[in-house]
Design a protein around this nucleic acid. Structure first.
Lengths: 228, 228
DNA sequence: CTGCATATATCTTCATAACATCTATATTAA
DNA sequence: TTAATATAGATGTTATGAAGATATATGCAG
């Protein structure tokens, strides 16, 4: 291992958030330094010599946006020569899921600003970060077909229509609520509470649901299978 | 990007091969140098400053085993501190599929030997390479449920039972041949030839099949869905 | 030659999932 | 009161999955 190498290793994160009002969003930071100064980019940075990749990304998120998240999955490593104009950087990317309302995001260190952007309305991104966002979105779409999704994105109690809207927002296509509900309920990771939602305006108020955390994580591990 | 970082980036490959006689195999090299001198390990090595990750892994494969493969997919990045006793190394891993009989493997450069090992009978591996192999095997298993697999592993013409045996070897469980055949044939990426297999011993000789390359790659891109 | 073992080919039936859509109910607003 | 809206529940048709029966083509042994 005496060979000389001049490559830096970075981690970057695609942080997805969901609210009923805003839909599916991605957390971006505005860069404070060159290159791409003042451009929006994914939060991230160099890996420390003694920290794991996961620790590195959690640290960078905390530093740049003051967010921490507990759903974190490695996405892909982007290593094309020239992706960073300064020197060779290989970026190991992750995606995570959070409830936006649970955090007050605050830009710091390398970031002059931090904000949520609806995934259908992203600004031009620095580096190859648009590709990374696309890859993460594709991953999340696929994941929804073989694992329960929603625990980290929805409120503790929510009407079933919120889960439905989440799926439609991510998959970007309509879903039949009646069939979808029957399928989801059959898996058993969702429980009905005794409460009803409070609606603005007309409409029958629906029951509030919550995830059965134990069953949710069990099925996340085992996998599920259904078509939408 | 003035921060100092003392991390090396390596690529490593899990090369799967399949033959009817040996089953599913993994290509390993015997290390020539410390650490883990004389231990079996996955082929790989450091990324060059100016080469892509894919080029790096292809080069290392060629150098260490004289194999080249055209099915290559990034698996995962392993970056736990301490995984290499010398210094900090992050390894970006790939897996690939080849026909073992199409190559005469020959160890060279960092490798004193190169050989195929049945996946159920692997020797102790250097570093965290056993985890990498497991991850690759899990990936290949999953992949078989949503993409056609076989083109890079089977002979140009083969009896249907070979495809069946391939799936059973990878998934490590029995498959009902009749149902499996019906499902696979329905996708359309398999063509029947006018030839029959030559059997050793008794048994009705079956027709030889071959992949329709165009349809195979189309469906690999689009995805398929079936249960086994 | 017959019988047996073996491997392949074809088909059927029952169970389950997917897809499409109808009807009923509870709420607000006009 | 009617109309609009959102939720709840159910049904029917089609497609897929799982299990298994039957038929056919080969080699081998007696």
């Amino acid at each position: 291992m005496s060979a000389s190498q001049n490559i830096k290793v970075a981690v970057d994160a695609v942080v997805f958030g969901y609210t009923s009002k805003e839909g599916l969003s991605v957390l971006l930071i505005k860069r404070k330094i060159k290159p791409y100064k003042d451009s929006w980019a994914l939060p991230g940075g160099l890996v420390g010599d003694d920290e794991s990749l996961e620790d590195a990304i959690q640290r960078e998120l905390k530093e740049e946006t003051s967010i921490s998240f507990n759903y974190l999955e490695q996405l892909y490593s982007f290593g094309k020569p020239g992706r960073d104009p300064r020197n060779r950087v290989i970026s190991i990317t992750y995606y995570g899921l959070v409830k936006p309302d649970a955090f007050e995001i605050k830009a710091d260190t390398d970031a002059s600003d931090a904000a949520w952007f609806n995934i259908k309305n992203l600004p031009p991104l620095a580096f190859d970060h648009d590709q990374i966002v696309n890859a993460a979105h594709d991953r999340l779409k696929s994941k929804m077909l073989y694992q329960p999704v929603g625990f980290e994105l929805l409120e503790e109690k929510f009407p079933f229509s919120e889960l439905e809207k989440l799926y439609m927002a991510v998959l970007d296509r309509p879903i039949d609520r009646r069939n979808f509900k029957k399928k989801i309920v059959k898996f058993g990771f969702l429980e009905e509470t005794n409460e009803k939602q409070a609606l603005d305006g007309a409409g029958r108020p629906g029951n509030l649901f919550r995830f059965n955390e134990e069953k949710y994580y069990l099925l996340q591990k085992q996998g599920i299978s259904f078509e939408i």
